[in-house]
Write a protein that binds this DNA or RNA. Structure first.
Length: 290
DNA sequence: CGTCCAGGTCTAC
DNA sequence: GGTAGACCTGGACGC
């Protein structure tokens, strides 16, 4: 294990970052090729750097994020790995406006201790594929499909080129993805052809949230739920993720007997561009002990 | 063994 | 723009 990086756990606005809250920010963050290890809390994930597959282990050391690599990396590869970690932890994001908004908020005041960073994958492509693998199936199926994808990728998540050249037979017979297979393969092919630049979707100056939502909804297999979910992973926090998990969770935690989507949206509308994040944090507070 | 449904989406009205 | 019905899979459940 070689120490790759130590970087302050601080966001772009100087706000604190809770390592535990970040690695437990959502379920997809724990899908292969990533995993959360407890005691001490660490986040591990394999990724492809050039020709090699590298296993990175991340943990909090004091107020720093320490990143270790199982392989010794040259300067160029080390730089690339650091860049991917920065993307995953969204180190360039500034949550301080949100924190200022919820300071003293009864429901969400606790968040300002460093919660609210939604851990991303190294690529938007991976998050889009994984999100589609969460739709209309049990979580066990999501794990099965993702595990197959990572096996295809030789231990790392496959890139668009590999998915585009993989025959549909594999999607059906090996990954058992059903109707999702053609969706994912089509998206991969569009990326490879250069007609779809998912990685640019993080660029706030280039695309506003509304545009990104429209572009996401154009993708096969991406509807309102998936678009909102991917938006959260992109750090675009207005849309609420409304699905068969969040709806009952909201009822349980709010004490309401029933609430249609419009009612839930109104309950969080006052958080403005952070409404979706506020909703998600309200639902997941108990995932981590303060 | 059949039906239902799980962190929905698409198509056709 | 709003709403049925179909859709892969496989685990849970009722009969």
């Amino acid at each position: 294990m070689a120490l790759l990086w130590e970087v302050p756990l601080v966001g772009a606005g100087g706000e604190p970052i809770s390592f535990a809250r970040t690695v437990h920010s959502h379920g997809c963050a724990q899908l292969p090729p990533a995993e959360v290890v407890e005691d001490p809390l660490r986040y591990r994930r394999r990724l492809r750097i050039g020709e090699r597959i590298v296993a990175l282990t991340m943990e909090a050391r004091g107020n720093e994020l320490a990143v270790e690599s199982d392989l010794k990396l040259g300067a160029r590869d080390a730089q690339k790995a650091r860049g991917l970690v920065a993307k995953m932890f969204r180190l360039d994001d500034d949550l301080s406006p949100f924190y200022a908004q919820i300071a003293g908020d009864e429901r969400l005041g606790w968040v300002t201790a460093g919660a609210g960073r939604i851990l991303a994958s190294p690529t938007v492509f991976e998050d889009v594929v994984k999100t589609i693998c969460t739709t209309n199936c049990a979580w066990s199926a999501t794990i099965r499909m993702t595990t197959a994808l990572v096996e295809l990728g030789g231990g790392a998540f496959p890139d668009a080129a590999l998915l585009a050249r993989t025959p549909l037979k594999w999607y059906n017979d090996v990954a058992r993805m059903g109707y999702r297979g053609p969706y994912l393969r089509t998206i991969a092919a569009e990326v490879v052809a250069g007609r779809l630049d998912l990685e640019s979707f993080t660029q706030r100056k280039r695309y506003d949230d509304e545009t990104i939502e429209e572009l996401l909804l154009e993708l096969p297999g991406v509807g309102p739920y998936a678009a909102a979910h991917i938006m959260q992973l992109l750090g675009r926090h207005r849309p609420l993720v409304l699905d068969s998990w969040t709806r009952p969770a909201y009822l349980r935690l709010s004490g309401r007997k029933r609430a249609v989507d419009g009612t839930i949206r109104r309950a969080f509308a006052r958080y403005g561009e952070y409404a979706g994040l506020a909703f998600w944090l309200f639902l997941t507070r108990e995932w981590v002990e303060d």
